[in-house]
Write a protein that binds this DNA or RNA. Sequence first.
DNA 1: CGCGTTTGACCTGCGC
DNA 2: GCGCAGGTCAAACGCG
Length: 360
Amino acid sequence: MEFTSLVDTSLDLSFRPRPVLDKLPKQEVQSDFTGLRGDNMGVKNETVDLLEELNRVSSENKKLTEMLTVVCENYNVLRNQMMEYMSTQNGLADDSAGSRKRKAESISNPNNSNININNNNNNNLDVVPGRSSESSSSDEESSCKKLREEHIKAKVTVVSMKTDASDTSLIVKDGYQWRKYGQKVTRDNPCPRAYFRCSFAPTCPVKKKVQRSIEDQSIVVATYEGEHNHPMTSKPEAGGANTTSTSTGSRLNVTTIAGTTASVPCSTTLNPSGPTITLDLTAPKTVEKRDMKMNQSASPTCGNSIHTSTGVEYQNRPEFQQFLIEQMATSLTKDPSFKAALAAAISGKILQHNNQTGRW
DNA sequence: CGCGTTTGACCTGCGC
DNA sequence: GCGCAGGTCAAACGCG
């Protein structure tokens, strides 16, 4: 899938940097010594500093390599799980063809998931897996009805994004082409709700509702229904069609499953049709924080924990893990510093190779 | 002129 | 059955 094409582990990131690092500075030191005999101490200090720096960078590279390996492994495992999950859901959805016209319409989405959403009238949607939170009755018939509806319901993702409050366009740039087909003022929110359909592919079943938050009008809440059956339409240019890669540091939240909230700093595009996971993608984060979060996410089995409202079982959810993995991979591949580190690693390997073969 | 947006009318589901 | 609210349709309109 996309991930494997984005992160090709065949780059052999697991190169052993130490020999390279041990070799290169030595050469440099020797040549320096021949030229600058009178300043041995200064050169030595500089060399030590460089060695330390190189060791630090190489250890970072090593960490990144390990993380990538883990991420790739997790992704493959989770992807398999997801495919399994999807196939079972498809089977259920096929059995639950609704009698009502509108419901039947939403069956057209082949990727129904067992998710029920209870909109509690603000940015946060409580997503109750398996059963609606408002139906307290134990009536079998109604519960069966609910379950059927849940299967019928398309995959829903809610994305809230902090924007300029003066911007009334209700446009959420997420990398896909949307055609507006309606606008409506809802009862509980004076701000109009805009309805969009994916216009890139005529067969794409994805719909999007965009409405400003009643509490904070600078926050735009986009509700995605369904799953795109085509790749993202726009190129990931800086400040362009990416929902989150804005230079203004817009704040973006994805809210859904089981009322959970995770905090993952991210500068990448959210896949609106992805698993319905809650993320708090707060843009301005320090590198240290990001690294910490990435470590947590990349090694979910290492006892690290992500702040969630429901505890550890949440981070073990395959949907969550897959989503995190995708986000991290995209983030990594778009991160200039990561690219620089990768370039340094590759050039280091080339240098090593050249040294071994006697060139230079 | 074609395409996307706007907007009022209409449709449908649901609660009472 | 009725009314309300959300969702959709489609003609009118605007823009490049």
